[in-house]
Amino acid sequence: MTAATLDSTAVAQYLVDHPQFFVEHAALLGEVKLSSPLTGRTVSLQERQMEVMRDKYRALELRLSELVRHAEENAAIANRFHGWTRQLLRTRAHADIPSAVADGLVEHFIVPQATLRLWKLPAEHADAWYTNGVSEDVRLFASSLRAPYCGPNKEFEAVGWLAGAEPAGADTVRSTVLLPLRTGASAFGLLVLGSPDPDRFSAAMATDFLVHIGETASTALAPLLG
């Protein structure tokens, strides 16, 4: 290789192919001078290598901190889900299960408002709070949901079911979650979560965990179908 054809790429490849180069020429480590992007001053190859290693270490620290944060958040969610599930399992009377589902979400997940409505139930439930005020439009809407709705309150009729909420479109509920309750492909109810915070339930939220809530609630409530 001649000086005319020697370029930075060739030098770099040569050093990769000859890892013993700086062992054989250790004196160069102190003589090669580089410009530091951190301080702007000229540093030795050894100093520059230390800067690179520190940058990598800081990046790893940040990544580890992020992983720890996610792990703590997941653990907190798992504990809340566990507490809610235990509450459902302790509820023996079928007529008490709807309240256990909704109140448990408020208690364990710190959801501002939660309620639900059911249909296709035997006549003995006709006068219960959880079967009142369900229109055919709501039933069709629930059946059309193939995934949880999570986002702004678009004047949904079901939002009017929430305790303390005025008719659909009330300003007190700015964001909401709508979860269909199903046995197989058939919807027999709708679970509604609401918040005055427009960012509490956003369209950007992951819905995997909401799906689990819907499935668990559906399983707990299925005995009411008779």
Rank of each mutant, 00 (worst) to 15 (best):
M1N: 12
A4L: 04
T5H: 07
D7M: 01
A10E: 11
Y14C: 01
H18M: 02
P19N: 04
Q20K: 10
Q20L: 12
F21C: 06
F21T: 06
F22P: 06
H25L: 04
K33V: 13
S36R: 03
S36A: 05
R41I: 12
T42G: 02
T42K: 08
Q46H: 08
E47A: 12
E47W: 00
R48Y: 06
Q49W: 04
Q49S: 13
M50G: 14
E51L: 06
R54I: 15
Y57S: 15
R58C: 10
A59W: 00
L60A: 13
E61R: 14
L62I: 04
L62A: 11
R63K: 14
S65W: 00
V68M: 03
V68P: 01
E72L: 09
E72I: 06
E73K: 15
E73F: 06
A75E: 02
A75F: 00
I77H: 12
I77M: 12
I77W: 11
A78F: 00
A78V: 03
R80T: 11
R86M: 15
Q87T: 13
Q87D: 14
L89K: 13
T91I: 04
A95K: 13
A95D: 14
P98F: 01
P98G: 04
P98W: 02
S99H: 04
A100N: 05
D103M: 10
G104P: 05
V106A: 11
H108Y: 10
H108V: 09
F109W: 10
F109S: 12
I110V: 15
V111I: 15
P112M: 09
P112Q: 09
Q113E: 13
T115Q: 09
L118S: 11
L118G: 11
W119N: 07
L121P: 06
A123S: 12
E124W: 00
H125A: 12
H125I: 03
H125Y: 15
D127T: 14
D127V: 10
A128E: 15
N132V: 09
S135E: 02
S135H: 02
D137G: 01
D137E: 06
V138G: 07
V138R: 11
R139T: 08
R139D: 06
L140M: 12
L140Q: 14
F141D: 09
F141Y: 14
A142H: 08
S143R: 13
S144A: 13
L145K: 07
R146G: 11
P148L: 02
Y149Q: 04
C150N: 12
C150T: 08
G151E: 01
N153C: 05
E155A: 15
F156W: 11
F156D: 05
G160H: 01
W161T: 07
E166I: 07
P167C: 01
A168H: 10
A170N: 12
R174C: 14
S175G: 07
T176W: 06
V177C: 12
V177H: 09
L178E: 03
P180D: 07
R182C: 03
R182W: 00
A185Y: 10
A185N: 15
F188Y: 10
V192A: 04
V192D: 04
V192S: 02
L193F: 07
L193W: 02
G194Q: 04
P196D: 12
D197G: 06
D199P: 05
S202C: 08
A203N: 13
A204V: 11
M205C: 07
D208M: 10
F209H: 10
I213R: 08
E215V: 14
T216P: 04
T216G: 13
T216S: 14
L224A: 03
L224F: 00
L225T: 08
